[in-house]
Write a protein that binds this DNA or RNA. Structure first.
Lengths: 260, 260
DNA sequence: GCGTCTAATTGATCCAAGTCATGGTCCTTC
DNA sequence: GAAGGACCATGACTTGGATCAATTAGACGC
């Protein structure tokens, strides 16, 4: 069945929209020049002088807690965000009240790129755990991207990647293929961030995973159970161990890379 | 059922890869400064002087015929293309041999953006009818985007739009919702290009539409038939008349905008 | 420690859409 | 203009995964 009737209502009560709320005043300088994520993030490849110019425009948000919003649909678009720590999900709610998870965002990944065109946010971004972001005011970022070739190139690269990844996700694949690709993609992303690619903890609920992968939460449970029976993974609550990454990789192969 | 087993093999024989083939030498200057599509395309909003700088880097391709390739998976990424006339489809073929249509591209729309990150093409782009493109060598384009604020802004806007559109398409919707959104989206795009939003001709086959929308070709036929019975549309071969655009729009509402 | 709440699992049933099969229509091509 | 071949439409049947229902397991407050 194509559409999950379970693509259900928003889980959490709308709590504070941390960054755009009136009481929020990011003041802390961030420092791309000393950030361990710089090689995954926008400053990739910049030299020391250019990193310092980045530092001048980037500020960090306060710590946000699970369920808090970074931005909401309709908020004016002011800045691109880079996840500094923790993780976020982005999602929309359609006119039928169904929720659609667009992505999960880990440290070093950008949020808000889809708001450039309409100049307002078109999705909600919610912290999945204790998290924070670097705030890059778009006008300033765009201006700096005019001056620094490497920054401009990397911004375009990262947007290009988002386009390709979204297109892959849109493809027609079975539940098993999608889940395998999801796990393999997460594994790779954790590895890039210096964590174990074999064992990691999911910060998102089964419901969010299901919603992201266009299936019912029950299907996620069942496929996890089947994968466990087939000794591909070991699941316990939200911690996952990939026991047979090769087999999983084969199953995910058809989707190529995926960036959940 | 999630995956269309009918996500079938490539339809046409691989014919000449027109632009990247050895014999292809685009020489004709294109002229953004006099192009009627400039307000939809990359040069949107540029002044006369900047348009002339665009003219200097843009060349036009020869006319291509139905079934010819603009680029193929694995081709080195050299340029972004803007559709000048006619239409293209972009698609991948996965490791199981299933075809996945990523999009249909009309005049003024860009092709090749997903190749920036990997520096090679990750999909095939095939002409659906007699068509041509403007060729914008990426290195030069990126350099010029550093110098012209409006060009940089528009490039980022268009990529932002692609990200949002791909995410929408990835969502979980019924066959009827997806087809309604497809028709409404096409209608709007034809209108933007000065054609009737009520009556237009599909350049793509039912099979391509189905593949793009993640369903079987039979489902497209059946939904078309149902829409016709309900007096929403009138179909004859590949020409479509939207008889009740409002109703269609309501059905598509849940997907927001869509750019097939 | 005990009640409450929500997330997750598991089983039973159902249905939207996929698959298979047939026939029709419109091109080409020789 | 006959033969071959894409397309496309439509009916009959099947099925992957959704839905519904019941149960269990943590998490949190008091």
């Amino acid at each position: 069945m194509a559409r999950t009737k379970t693509a259900d209502k928003v889980a959490k009560d709308p709590t504070v929209a941390a960054v755009n709320s009136p009481g929020f005043h990011p003041k802390l300088q961030a420092a791309c020049s000393t950030c361990s994520l710089a090689q995954l993030c926008l400053p990739m490849g910049l030299d020391q002088a250019d990193l310092e110019r980045m530092d001048a425009l980037v500020t960090r948000s306060d710590l946000m807690h699970e369920g808090e919003y970074l931005f909401r649909v309709g908020d004016p678009f002011k800045a691109i965000y880079a996840v500094r720590a923790g993780s976020y999900k982005s999602y929309t709610v359609d006119s039928e009240g169904r929720e659609h998870v667009l992505g999960f965002h880990l440290a070093g990944e950008l949020l808000g790129l889809d708001a450039i065109y309409p100049e307002k946010h078109v999705c909600n971004a919610m912290a999945l755990d204790t998290a924070s972001v670097c705030v890059m005011p778009y006008d300033q970022l765009r201006a700096l991207a005019g001056q620094i070739d490497g920054l401009r190139a990397q911004l375009l690269r990262l947007m290009s990647k988002d386009i390709a990844d979204a297109a892959t996700l849109a493809g027609d694949f079975t539940a098993e293929e999608r889940i395998a690709a999801f796990l393999v993609g997460l594994s790779r992303r954790f590895q890039q961030r210096g964590f174990s690619p074999k064992e990691f903890t999911l910060t998102m609920s089964r419901r969010d995973i299901a919603n992201y992968l266009r299936m019912a939460p029950e299907t996620v449970s069942r496929v996890f159970a089947r994968f466990e029976k087939d000794k591909l993974i070991a699941v316990e609550h939200r911690s996952i161990r990939l026991s047979d990454a090769n087999k999983l990789h084969d199953m995910a192969q058809c989707m190529g890379e995926m960036r959940p």
